[in-house]
């Protein structure tokens, strides 16, 4: 019997469960105290030391001006609704196109090889081009061909640009999900007399899609931020509105306001994605 680490008295008899529990509790309390102490020390260091920097006053005025924050917040929040709207109509389209491309890449009929090729090319191209370039090309290029209003709207073509790029990523995620379903399950389905189509529909996809939900949550969070790229072709959403304020007020605080508004959405979403992943890990183990 060893001496207890915290220097407690060595019990006379054999260790009971109560003794072990008490020991575990002490250890836990101590690590909690250490974690709390170190976090507090870091926070205090930041709060005390940063304002001591010679340029802090200028930085505070430029980035954290309370006056500008209050002045610009309502308009920026209203502009953010446009981001949400674009996000809401893009996300379902991305899911559908992404799944379709993933299915193209899984086609096993030799006659349909062109589909496979198309799927591979599509993901290669749209994952390889920076989003902003696709937004410019599609957002200005296609309407430039002479489409009449309202069909040349930057909202339509900008959204299409996001859909093209993101569906390429999402397709790869779906494909990884589809490939994670073991071949033996397809064989079993075939032996039960299911067609290829039904095998995919009733056996593979239900498992595949569930497995990639957390990964797709990450794509949703990324999309939520990239919606701001549409501002490059005209729409005045939160990022652009913040830029206008920045220019008029010669102050970067509006960008900080925009960042706060984004965080209010993305932090809960990220935590939810973490939760889903943790739950999935538990189910698998």
């Amino acid at each position: 019997m060893a001496l207890l680490e915290n220097g407690g008295a060595v019990p006379a008899g054999p260790l009971t469960k109560a003794d072990r529990d008490a020991y575990a509790r002490r250890l836990r309390n101590r690590s909690l105290a250490v974690a709390g102490g170190s976090t507090a020390a870091v926070l205090i260091a930041i709060v005390v030391l940063v304002p001591l920097a010679p340029g802090w006053e200028a930085v505070r005025r430029s980035f954290f001006s309370g006056e500008v924050f209050v002045e610009t917040f309502p308009t920026l929040l209203r502009a953010f609704m446009l981001d949400v709207a674009i996000f809401l109509w893009c996300a379902p389209a991305i899911a559908v196109v992404g799944l379709a491309i993933a299915l193209c890449r899984d086609v096993r009929n030799p006659a349909l090889y062109p589909l496979r090729l198309f799927g591979a090319l599509y993901t290669d191209i749209f994952r390889g081009i920076p989003v902003i370039l696709v937004v410019y090309l599609v957002g200005f290029g296609i309407p430039g061909l002479g489409l009449p209003r309202p069909w040349n709207s930057p909202y339509i073509w900008g959204s299409l640009a996001l859909i093209l790029t993101y569906s390429a990523y999402v397709a790869e995620i779906f494909r990884s999900g589809i490939e994670s379903v073991h071949q033996s399950q397809r064989n079993a389905a075939l032996s039960l007399g299911l067609s290829d189509r039904d095998t995919m529909r009733y056996v593979v996809l239900p498992q595949a899609i569930r497995r990639v939900v957390p990964a797709n949550m990450n794509m949703l969070i990324a999309l939520q931020k990239d919606v701001a790229l549409l501002s490059f072709i005209g729409p005045v959403e939160i990022f652009r509105q913040a830029g206008v304020y920045k220019s008029l007020l010669a102050n970067f605080t509006p960008y900080v306001v925009a960042a706060c508004i984004f965080l209010a959405i993305t932090i809960p979403a990220t935590r939810y994605a973490d939760y889903l992943m943790a739950r999935q890990a538990r189910e698998r183990s």
Binding site: F140, P143, G144, G146, L147, P148, R149, N152, S153, P154, F232, I233, G234
Partner: peptide, 12 residues
């Protein structure tokens, strides 16, 4: 440049 591009695309 972007403003002119949007004008060419008849968006504005």
């Amino acid at each position: 440049t972007d403003v002119v591009e949007a004008m060419k695309a008849n968006q504005i």
